[in-house]
Every structure is written in C-alpha cells, then in structure tokens.
C-alpha cells in the first residue's frame, strides 16, 4: 500500500489505523481491507459492513470555508485510535475494523475520516461503527484550523453533537 498503515491482530485478522497526508478514496481503502480479510479468513467470512465517511463542508458557523489544516499529535493519535478499535473489539463480535483519517491540508469535498466495521451480523457492525466515530471525536488528538474566504484563519473550538 502507498499509505502508512499500522496493523494489529484482531483474532488473527487485519485491523488498521491509517493516517493519510493526501486525499484518499474511501472505496479504495475498503476494497484493499476486504482483500486482506478475504485472504486471512476466506471469502464470505463476514455478513455485514458498516461504514461512515466524514467529508469537509464548504461552510462552518455561517462562514464560507475554503481550506482546512488538520494538526495532530502523531504518536498519541495512533495509540488512541488503536485503543478505540481494541475497545470496540471487546464490546462487539467484530471480524475487522478500519479507521482512516486525514492530516495536513484539506479542501471542501475531501474525505476527512473513514470508519468501517465488518462483522457477521448488522447489529455489531452498525453499533461498533458508530462507537468508533464517536470515540474518535472525543479521544483522538486532532485539531482543525479553518481558512475563510478572506484568507483569515481560525481554530475550530468544538465538535457538533453526534446524536440528533
């Protein structure tokens, strides 16, 4: 793979945390991960895949946003994301999980984050995928700095609620 990845074993199968400095295609990452699952466990090992993709909006707090820079604390980010996957794998019967997250410069429309969970049945996939995303929002050490239309910059101060 051309991106840096950090694999650990979940019941002997691939589990990945991927931090990317360049734009990514969520479908490409999902396909690559599924190829690894199939190679490790055989085709048909899972019956459910739940995914979430967060993308960059062109506005925030009523202002047009033209770009954003994602800063992070590299070692801690990796450790916290791995811990989130470990916790999910203890709470739900997962076959595999993937978290991919952008860092660096991004523009509206770019994917920022991908969370994906493979399991035998939909309940674990839906619930664990939601857990990965919400835990990432509170524990993973990323910070967003927006560039507005007039070229001024501002830090995003808080996340929006995850539940409607």
């Amino acid at each position: 793979m051309r991106w840096p990845s950090f694999h650990r074993s979940l019941a002997g199968k691939p589990v990945a945390v991927i931090l990317l400095e360049q734009s990514f295609d969520p479908a490409e990452l999902l396909n690559a991960q599924q190829a690894q699952i199939d190679a490790a466990a055989g085709e048909g090992s899972y019956g459910a895949l739940a995914t979430f993709v967060g993308t960059m909006r062109d506005s925030n707090e009523g202002d047009a946003v033209v770009a954003m820079r994602l800063e992070h604390y590299p070692e801690m980010t990796e450790q916290q994301l791995q811990k989130i996957i470990d916790t999910a794998s203890q709470r739900w019967p997962l076959i595999d999980a993937l978290i991919a997250h952008r860092v660096g410069e991004i523009v509206p429309g770019d994917p920022i984050v991908l969370t994906a969970v493979w399991s035998k049945h939909r309940a674990a996939a839906f619930d664990a995928c939601r857990y990965l995303m919400e835990a990432l929002k509170t524990d993973a050490t990323f910070w967003k700095k927006e560039t507005l239309a007039d070229n001024s910059e501002r830090w995003v101060e808080r996340n929006t609620p995850g539940y409607s």
């Binding site: 509170t138 993973a140 050490t141 990323f142």
Partner: peptide, 10 residues
Amino acid sequence: VAFFPPVTGG
C-alpha cells in the same frame, strides 16, 4: 507530558 485544547477531529 502534553497539553492541548478540546480535540476536533473526525
């Protein structure tokens, strides 16, 4: 040791 504001990833 590290210090930082509330995180805003995702």
